[in-house]
Amino acid sequence: MAGIVNHKRRGATVKSQRGSDEPAWVRWLLITLGLAFVGIFLVLPLVNVFVQAFQMGLGFYVKSLLEADTVHAIKLTLLITCITVPLNTIFGMAAAWCIAKFDFKGKAFLITLIDLPFAVSPVVAGLMFVVWFGRQGIFGGWLEEHDIKIIFAVPGMVLATTFITFPFVARELIPVMQATGTEQEQAALTLGASGWQTFWHVTLPSSKWGVIYGVILCNARAMGEFGAVSVVSGSIAGSTETIPLRVDKLFHSASMAAGVSAFAVASLLAVLALITLVIKSYLEWRTERDHALAQEATGEVGN
């Protein structure tokens, strides 16, 4: 499932009026079809979030966001993200190091295992933790005796979110680390550097954009995760409600105002998505430019 998050390591797009191009009307038909699809399916929904959110004016919008339960949901989401993302970043670096820099048996299996959260339904993921830590779960009795709450509490939500988002950094870093090879690290070793020194001074700087890219995606998913979290959280307002769960709660309440509030809260996540996309595009533009520069440089050598 490598194609899911790591894509677009693109070279320069070469296009001109080639003799083998399609006739103009075909080109324009295809462009129109593609753009119409993007417009209706991707742009409109995004615009709609903001239009609906401000439907009852700016005052109501602000009021919706400042509601106590919503503020709590925002705080909880940030808390979960602050635990999950660093954990998964460390995991991603460790996994990428052993997978990209070494050959060993079972590597393909390990990569597939890392891909698992991409393929497994978030609901199933959430349920797996309920099976262990829920009231009737394997550890349920023991946890209850010791008065430890995992399910319907923050620890369970952290676990579920960590599960859903752990592949992102690893998946971004593996191809980047593979592409740089191991020669620079070997060179550092011959110059006397220890493993840590090699990692900090050589590996990390040359793959830092990959790390950032992975962290951005991981962060977006962690803040927006719904399915897995809703299974383990119990959605108790003011206690175990994250932003997406809050949106769900507001949407399903009967009042018209709550519906608008749902959009107001949702607009926060939409903004997050937009920021993610901007950073993502910037990083891609950067890697593309670096790549082009490097190619230009090697081109000059031949002269």
């Binding site: 593609g34 753009l35 993007v38 991707l42 742009v43 929904p45 995004l46 709609n48 979030v49 609906q52 995606l217 977006a220 803040m223 927006g224 995760e225 719904f226 399915g227 932003i243 997406p244 769960l245 949106v247 769900d248 949407f251 749902a262 959009f263 949702a266 996540l269 939409a270 997050l272 998505a273 937009l274 993610t276 996309l277 901007v278 993502k280 595009s281």
Partner: peptide, 20 residues
């Protein structure tokens, strides 16, 4: 347009469901 293709990837599913 190219960047917009990633909207469904970046937009939390709850928001997508809500607006759709």
């Amino acid at each position: 347009v190219d960047a917009l293709v990633d909207v469904p990837f970046a937009l939390p599913t709850a928001v997508a469901g809500l607006t759709l």
